[in-house]
Amino acid sequence: MKLLIASDSHGLTEELIELKRRYGGEMDAMIHCGDSELRADEEAIRDFLTVRGNCDYERKFPLDITKEIGDSKIFVTHGHHYNVKMTLLNLSYKAKEVGADFVFFGHSHILGAELIENTLFLNPGSLLMPRGRTERTYAVVEKNGNTIRVSFYTDKHRELEDLRQEFSL
């Protein structure tokens, strides 16, 4: 399974179109964790699994998505309803409730990945306004058997190799 995760693009369109052009054919899913500030019918966000963030007014985007991809269950949310800027505890309760293997969220604009009780929690950072680092980022998650590889990339598609992580289940 191979997934692209982006978030907090706040009105950007060319960057999302470029991600689709570059990765569209090789990903099992392309995910946007909210605050796109786009309408659901706009070309840039079409083909992404997209949730509604606190800056989104498009009601066609759900607050949360739970979806099975391959043999994994993913949960996608923006994170503002789970207080992710303060703690992952609320989000971890929701992950257990839905049986998620992967939890993708945004809101804080701070990239990171952490395996908690065999569930991967990942924030891809922001494509527009990163916090904690200067690079505008997105993430690619690959699962092969019991190994998960997380790679973070800049908006110019350069891998931040020092942030690459591998997790064993």
Rank of each mutant, 00 (worst) to 15 (best):
L3G: 02
I69N: 00
T147L: 13
E161V: 13
P124K: 03
C55Q: 05
N83W: 12
V51Y: 02
G99P: 10
A100R: 01
R164H: 11
K156S: 13
F102L: 15
A100T: 12
K2W: 06
M27L: 07
G125C: 09
G24W: 03
H32I: 04
Y138D: 03
K156H: 14
E135A: 12
L3V: 08
N83P: 06
L128Y: 05
E114F: 07
R149E: 14
N144Y: 12
N146P: 09
E159T: 11
V141K: 06
E142C: 14
C55I: 02
N118Y: 05
L115C: 07
K20Y: 01
F167K: 04
R59V: 14
M86A: 13
E58S: 14
Q165S: 15
H32D: 03
L128D: 06
E14C: 02
H81I: 11
N83I: 09
T134K: 15
S126G: 10
T119I: 05
S72K: 09
P130A: 07
I110M: 12
R131I: 10
K73C: 06
M1A: 14
I5R: 00
E15R: 04
K60T: 12
R131C: 13
R22S: 05
Y93D: 15
I110R: 10
P62F: 09
S9T: 05
R22M: 04
F152M: 07
G145H: 13
R158P: 03
Y57S: 13
D8L: 01
S151Q: 11
Y23G: 00
E142T: 15
S126N: 06
G106F: 07
E14Q: 08
L163I: 06
N90L: 13
M86D: 11
